[in-house]
């Protein structure tokens, strides 16, 4: 998902002019917020979200920027936000003694991020359970990450509880 924010002159046709380069370069527009209430110095902020096919990202995103700048439009933001998905797993065993930092790093190597760990601890030497919340871009298949976690659990002799 790409987010583009700019300031447009309050005159007829300016919004259409602004959107043209996006569609001409293969952008698929999802939403437009054109907020007249926030008009300042005859400029209205506009917020557009659109999608650009992965293959076009490198070539056409710069083209969109250039085309807008040529039209004299002031871009305040142009960023690509990766859509995220979340999953939870529980690990049981010597979760901490078996080097949880290593576990987290290995999940990160596959492109996912452990965003939260909740654990129940008895004594350090005892087995414990930890619930991991994992965030990953939608472009990565959950199964690949789960396979990695399964592999780690096998090596570290941990029990893995996946989500449904």
């Amino acid at each position: 998902m790409i987010i583009l924010e700019a300031l447009l002159k309050d005159q007829p046709g300016s919004l259409i002019e602004f959107l043209k380069p996006i569609s001409e370069n293969g952008g698929n527009i999802f939403g437009i917020i054109h907020d007249h209430n926030k008009k300042k110095n005859n400029l209205i902020p506009v917020h557009v979200t659109f999608e650009l096919h992965e293959e076009l990202l490198k070539t056409n995103l710069p083209k969109i920027r250039e085309a807008l700048e040529e039209k004299g439009i002031k871009i305040s933001k142009l960023t690509q936000e990766l859509a995220q998905q979340e999953m939870k797993v529980i690990l049981w065993g010597h979760v901490f003694e078996s080097d949880i930092v290593n576990t987290v790093k290995r999940i990160a190597e596959k492109g996912a991020r452990v965003s939260e760990i909740r654990a129940k601890l008895l004594e350090v030497k005892d087995e414990s359970s930890a619930l991991l919340t994992i965030e990953l871009p939608v472009s990565i298949d959950k199964e690949t990450i789960l396979d990695t976690i399964q592999q780690i659990c096998k090596e570290k002799n941990l029990l893995l509880f996946k989500s449904e």
């Binding site: 939870k88 529980i90 049981w92 909740r118 654990a119 129940k120 008895l122 087995e127 414990s128 359970s129 930890a130 619930l131 029990l159 509880f161 989500s163």
Partner: peptide
Amino acid sequence: SKIKNQVVELAKSEDV
């Protein structure tokens, strides 16, 4: 048979 109550409790605290 290897499931410990700790795991069940932790899950429950997350509404799972």
